[in-house]
C-alpha cells in the first residue's frame, strides 16, 4: 500500500515537472516531445492504478497518434512560438479560474472517500453486474458484458456517431482532392 502511494507520488511529481516545462518551452518541437513523454508517464500511472484499458488508450492515442498528428501539423506552422506580452485581462481570467477551481475543490469535500466499499457507486448496480453478467449473457469479462450488452444501444449509437464523422471527413477531403486533380488535368489540356 505504502509503496503504491510512493510510486504514484513519484510519477505525479514527474508529470508535474514535465508539465511545467511544457508551459515554459518556446520551441514547438520540444513541446511535442515533452507532451508525448508526459502521456507515456500518465499511462504508466494508469497501469499502476490498475486501469489497464485506460492506459492502453492513453498510450496509443496520447503518445502515439496525437504526437504524430502534432508533428504533421507542425510542418505547416512556424517553428518558434511568439512570446506573448502579459496584459491585464489575464489577471481577470486568472482570478475566475482560481475562484471556480477553489469552489470545485471545496465541493469535493462532500464526496465519499475514494475506494470505500460502502460508496453508492459500489452498492447500486455493480454487484448485480459482477454476480449476474456471466449467467445473463455468458461473457466472462464484466467490462465487455457491460459495454456490449447492458449498454449495447449506447455503444451502438457511439459507433454510428464515430462512423458518420469519419465518413464526413473522408467525403470532404475526397471532394477537395478530386477538384484539384480535375483542375490540374484541365490546365494540362488547355496548355496543349
Amino acid at each position: 500500500m505504502i509503496t503504491e502511494i510512493i510510486i504514484n507520488a513519484f510519477l505525479v511529481s514527474f508529470m508535474l515537472v514535465i508539465a511545467l516545462f511544457i508551459v515554459n518551452t518556446r520551441k514547438v518541437i520540444f513541446t511535442i516531445l515533452l507532451a508525448g513523454t508526459y502521456s507515456l508517464v500518465a499511462a504508466l500511472m494508469f497501469v499502476s492504478l490498475d486501469a489497464v484499458d485506460v492506459a492502453f488508450t492513453e498510450a496509443s492515442v496520447g503518445a502515439g497518434i496525437s504526437t504524430i498528428l502534432f508533428l504533421a501539423a507542425l510542418s505547416f506552422l512556424p517553428k518558434e512560438e511568439v512570446q506573448e506580452s502579459f496584459n491585464k485581462n489575464n489577471i481577470f481570467a486568472l482570478s475566475i479560474c482560481l475562484l471556480i477551481g477553489g469552489l470545485l475543490i471545496w465541493a469535493s469535500y462532500d464526496l465519499p472517500m475514494v475506494g470505500n466499499e460502502n460508496n453508492p457507486v459500489h452498492q447500486h448496480l455493480v454487484s448485480d453486474f459482477i454476480e449476474g453478467s456471466k449467467n445473463h449473457i455468458g461473457i466472462p469479462n464484466v467490462v465487455t458484458a457491460i459495454l456490449a450488452s447492458y449498454r449495447g444501444y449506447d455503444t451502438f449509437g457511439e459507433t454510428i456517431v464515430i462512423y458518420t464523422a469519419g465518413l464526413a471527413v473522408f467525403i470532404l477531403l475526397y471532394n477537395r482532392t478530386l477538384k484539384e486533380t480535375n483542375k490540374s488535368v484541365k490546365n494540362e489540356i488547355s496548355k496543349k
Binding site: 518541437i29 511535442i32 516531445l33 508525448g36 507515456l40 499511462a43 497501469v47 489497464v52 492506459a55 492502453f56 498510450a59 496509443s60 503518445a63 502515439g64 504526437t67 504524430i68 508533428l71 504533421a72 507542425l74 510542418s75
Partner: peptide, 25 residues
C-alpha cells in the same frame, strides 16, 4: 501493453526523425 508501448515509441521516434530529415510528414 509494454509491447504496444514499444511499438508506439518506435513509430513516434521515426515520425520525429522523418520530420527533421524531410521537413514534412
Amino acid at each position: 501493453i509494454s509491447i504496444v508501448y514499444a511499438l508506439i515509441n518506435f513509430i513516434g521516434t521515426v515520425a520525429v526523425l522523418k520530420l527533421f530529415d524531410k521537413g514534412k510528414l
